[in-house]
């Protein structure tokens, strides 16, 4: 596995359970113990005001809310993969998550497209979650 030259996440204690779940290839999001709402990105409070939550697995399916095809990347490591698709995906549990869409031609991506989560172990200590067309 080559050195990972792209940007890495900043994993503070609040964010650790999420990234641990990614590493297990089963994303878990916080679910509010009070109102039941899932939330992402990890935060200390639900919008209902409750601080209590339980890390809960999600199905890993959703649909594209919006997207862009990036041609001009921020650094050479990303530029090597351009053009690539970044999508905001509404997962079935409610929240939106951002990631790249892999496994299809960028021109195939459209708003409303069903996608599923896939995982990629990019470094010994880092696994990423990505989206790919469903089915």
């Amino acid at each position: 596995m080559a050195d990972y030259e792209k940007l890495r996440p900043e994993i503070t204690p609040l964010h650790e359970p999420f990234w641990d779940s990614v590493k297990r290839h089963q994303v878990e999001l916080q679910r509010c113990d009070s109102c039941g709402a899932f939330r992402f990105i990890p935060t200390e409070l639900c919008r209902c005001g409750s601080a209590a939550s339980t890390w809960t697995p999600i199905a890993g399916t959703g649909e594209v809310y919006t997207y862009t095809v990036v041609h001009r990347a921020p650094t050479p490591a990303y530029q090597a993969e351009a053009p690539y698709v970044i999508a905001h995906v509404t997962v079935d549990e409610g929240p939106r998550m951002i990631s790249v869409v892999v496994g299809c031609d960028p021109t195939d991506v459209h708003i409303g497209m069903p996608v599923t989560l896939v995982y990629e172990d990019v470094a010994p200590d880092l696994t990423l979650y990505k989206f790919t067309p469903a089915g």
Partner: peptide
């Protein structure tokens, strides 16, 4: 400027242009 967002954005190779491109697309 690409790193002005949170890691949950810039991890994927976003830029300021990409951040607004998703607004335009929507």
């Amino acid at each position: 400027m690409a790193q002005l967002g949170s890691p949950y954005e810039y991890l994927w190779g976003t830029t300021r242009v990409a951040d607004y491109a998703v607004v335009a697309r929507r």
